[in-house]
Amino acid sequence: MNIFRLAGDMMHLFSIIVLLLKINATRSCRGVSLKTQELYAIVFVCRYLDLFTSFISLYNTTMKLIFLLSTFTIIYWMRFHKVIRVTYDREQDTFRYQFLILPCFLLALVLNNEFSAMEVLWTFSIYLEAVAILPQLVLLQRTNNIDNLTGNYVFLLGSYRALYILNWIYRFMTEPNYRQYLVWISGIVQTIVYIDFFYYYIRSWRNNEKLSLPA
């Protein structure tokens, strides 16, 4: 565990805390994409299948449980909570995510480290996470007046994988036989997807103005 990996995990944890706070404190999920939350639920389920079979560390298991529970809580709130569900932008959050799920699954069938169910699903989760934020970014472009907490959520979520890239570079240099080409490429693609958002987020922060993404 190096500082980049820990910082990345903390950014990821903070992004989820910010989102939970935003929805719970404002009793509203306006501007939040349910599609992205559901894609992340698929990512975590497919990635953490070994949650009960292989124990790595208390930290590892705890974080996996937090990610799973928080994502399902958000989905539950957005779908069933009597006050929160009415604030969901159903008409705006229309990204057809089957066009993300299917290609990622097919790619995982073809491009993986081992052709076994667990490994293909794990690889699928790596590819799917790279594009899981797209429905949320599309929704932000359609939502005028993005509230700060939602903007912060996306920024923290994007910065977590960017920090993971530094972690991979560090491990590549210090651990002789550490190779994760598929994860590295997917993580770089994931971070590139955020670059556009990062630019507008940092500019709005510098100019101290409301964040807005061009349509």
């Binding site: 990996r5 995990d9 070994d50 790595i56 974080m63 990610f67 994760q180």
Partner: peptide, 10 residues
């Protein structure tokens, strides 16, 4: 061990 090591990230 290699396998476990490979999946130590979240």
């Amino acid at each position: 061990a290699e396998e476990k090591e490979a999946k130590d990230e979240l």
